[in-house]
Amino acid sequence: MTQMWANFHLLRPEWLLLLPLSLGLWWLWQRSRDPLRGWRAQMHPDLLNALLVGEHSKRNLARYLLPVAWLLGIIAIAGPTWKLEPNPFVEDAQPLMILLKSDKSMLQTDSSSATHMERAQLKIADLAKARKGQPLGLIAYAGSAHLVLPPTADTAVVAEMAAEISPDIMPVPGDRLDLAIQKATALLQEESHGGSLLVIADTVAADSQTLTSTNQTANPVPIQFLALADADSPETTTLRDAAEQLNANVQELTIDDQDVSTITDFAERNASAGIAGESSRWQEAGYWLTPLLALIVAFSFRRRELAEAEKPS
């Protein structure tokens, strides 16, 4: 409530200049319609009130409805507001680009019989189900980075394409995560939307200085890592070091869907970092006064009908 009053202002305060004018016109109109105006100049007010009978002896509250309606209408036109309009882009799901490492190191195994690549493909399939209908893209990288699919709402296709990726189809071996990040960032910027990156890898062998300069832009893209190796392994340590250079988070692999839930939550919170939150336009609240104006108009019509009914035929 305190924040609301601190932000309260009028979008068009110049309309408030009509307030004294409207009150003055109403006062002049009331004087011109007063049937006892001549008597008021000749008699003492107490004596005149004692002689009045019927509706003139009572205060007619209905006559005050007109200035109240004018005041409410002027305030509504002045544009009272206290909060910014929500950004329309935030309502739409922002793209999540998956950067899948496809070097030969992904064929290694740890504590389970599944290779790192098989683990990654299974998690991508789970992620595609969790983000069904929300834009999901895929980039495969090793010594070079290649766009497999731009962000698409058909996430099942992303899972199918990821299942077909292997180190054998990559033209250059290596670990150029920096190239993958650059390609994904450029793609998101071309679409003029927010977005975030998910790096699925077992290790990161890129130079720390190269990684540091990779995501240093005016609007850096939020990045998170999914570690495929064991949590206490030297391979995962390289991911943590890379994440520190990129100001990113590292999510460890879990046997359930907890890692997928954490990834999707992070994406929803941070994907629209460049456009999220509130827009620069203030949301008008004057329309909230229209029900009161409608009631006043309806009441004035009712009073007129009663007055017509009371007239002698």
Results as ranks from 00 to 15, higher is better:
A186P: 04
D175T: 04
D230I: 12
L188I: 11
N215C: 05
M170Q: 06
A227I: 07
T212N: 07
D232T: 07
R176D: 08
D168P: 00
D178Y: 13
V172K: 11
L197M: 10
A180R: 00
T236K: 03
A229S: 13
E190H: 06
D207P: 04
S196V: 04
R240G: 02
S192P: 07
S208T: 07
N219W: 14
A180C: 07
P220H: 11
R240H: 07
I169D: 02
I200K: 00
G194V: 03
A206M: 09
T185P: 03
D178K: 11
L226R: 09
T236H: 08
V199R: 01
Q182S: 15
V204H: 08
I169M: 13
P234M: 11
A205D: 15
D175Y: 04
I223M: 13
I181R: 00
G194K: 00
A180L: 00
P220K: 11
I169V: 05
D232W: 08
D232N: 14
L179V: 04
E235W: 12
D202G: 15
T203V: 06
T238Q: 06
I165T: 02
L177R: 06
L187P: 02
D230W: 08
P220L: 00
H193Y: 02
T217Q: 15
H193E: 13
P173A: 03
S233H: 12
Q216W: 06
A229L: 07
S233M: 12
S166I: 01
A205K: 09
V204F: 13
E164D: 11
E191I: 10
R176N: 15
L197Q: 05
Q182H: 14
D178C: 11
D232Q: 11
V204S: 06
A242H: 14
A184H: 00
H193I: 05
T236Y: 08
K183H: 10
D178E: 14
D168Y: 01
D207G: 04
T236P: 03
E235L: 14
S192V: 10
P234H: 00
F225L: 11
A242W: 10
D241W: 11
